[in-house]
Design a protein around this nucleic acid. Structure first.
Lengths: 168, 168
DNA sequence: AGTATATTTCAATAAATATTGAAAGTTTGA
DNA sequence: TCAAACTTTCAATATTTATTGAAATATACT
């Protein structure tokens, strides 16, 4: 396989994986493109390489900045803005985990805790089944939350290394 | 909060969370409904409770069966089929992890391994940046894969218990 | 075999999401 | 202060994804 084709495939696969996990396909593709670019790219270059409009490129680049996955670069003597991706994959993983935890896990945890407090008749199967499911999910979500918290603070080698030492 | 409202909120939240993570909202809602139902439900009941069409209910219930999250129940003397959800939350989590690993993680891992084999000039920044990103992601994905593998075999208490013992 | 009951399928339709592109806004330097 | 270079916005449009509902199929009982 040629490098050019390999790049293309990587970008497509990243886009597909993203969309399967609720992340806009174009956003994942732009991220992939910047990840494999040694140099920072301009909006124009992103537009051309991925064949997307200026508006789309602009919004997507802003979103990626909000996710903390890319940064702007200013070059003295130039008007244009350049964009480059954080290249450390563990840092990227932590960043994504951090944002999704904040945007999606935490609101659900909050609701689950409220729902757990709903009172009712312990003899009522409707109530007791509801209560048990909510409590169990809350407990699991709490464990996931704590694990992510740990992940956010940890180095990759330590995180996985420690897990595998145990699970051998 | 009343039980009826709490149930509604739970179903909605589960649907929202699902859609944020690439799972059809209706599928997540049907799952939530069955999760908090002490009894198995018929297609009719699911249709009525969630206000969805017969076709949608049927397809969604089939999908949930394919995900291994619910089962059919036959009652002697009755023609209708009843559906009920696996209630153990850790089993559910493992089931979801197993399916997503198989459907989404494994294909990507396979491609990454191929892309890692692409040859090129180590002096070429385009090549070396590509190579490094692909290799790093492959390594991380491999670690995730191994962790999920462990999770699939483990009991909840052991899994999280072991992690937290380390990370204290 | 006939029929009532239940399930499945899938083309048509609707809803949700993403993208475009042109106009408005901003910045910089002459 | 002007205008070229660049960025942002957002209503209109396109695309993707989900849902409907009625016809086709299957099942079980008499």
């Amino acid at each position: 396989m040629e490098l050019a084709e390999a790049k293309q495939r990587f970008i497509e696969a990243w886009g597909k994986l993203g969309s399967e996990w609720g992340i806009n396909r174009t956003m994942a593709q732009v991220h992939a493109l910047l990840l494999i670019s040694p140099e920072a790219l301009t909006t124009e270059q992103v537009m051309e390489q991925l064949q997307i409009s200026r508006g789309n490129a602009n919004m997507t680049l802003r979103d990626l900045i909000n996710w903390g996955l890319i940064e702007k670069q200013h070059r003295s003597g130039e008007r244009k803005e350049y964009f480059f991706a954080e290249k450390d994959v563990w840092t990227i993983a932590r960043q994504v985990a951090k944002e999704r935890k904040r945007r999606e896990l935490e609101p659900v945890l909050k609701l689950l805790t409220q729902l757990q407090e709903v009172e009712g008749d312990a003899q009522d199967p409707d109530y007791s089944t509801f209560k048990k499911s909510v409590t169990d999910i809350n407990k699991l979500a709490g464990n996931v939350d704590k694990t992510l918290e740990t992940m956010l603070k940890a180095e990759e080698n330590w995180f996985f290394g420690s897990i595998f030492k145990l699970f051998k």
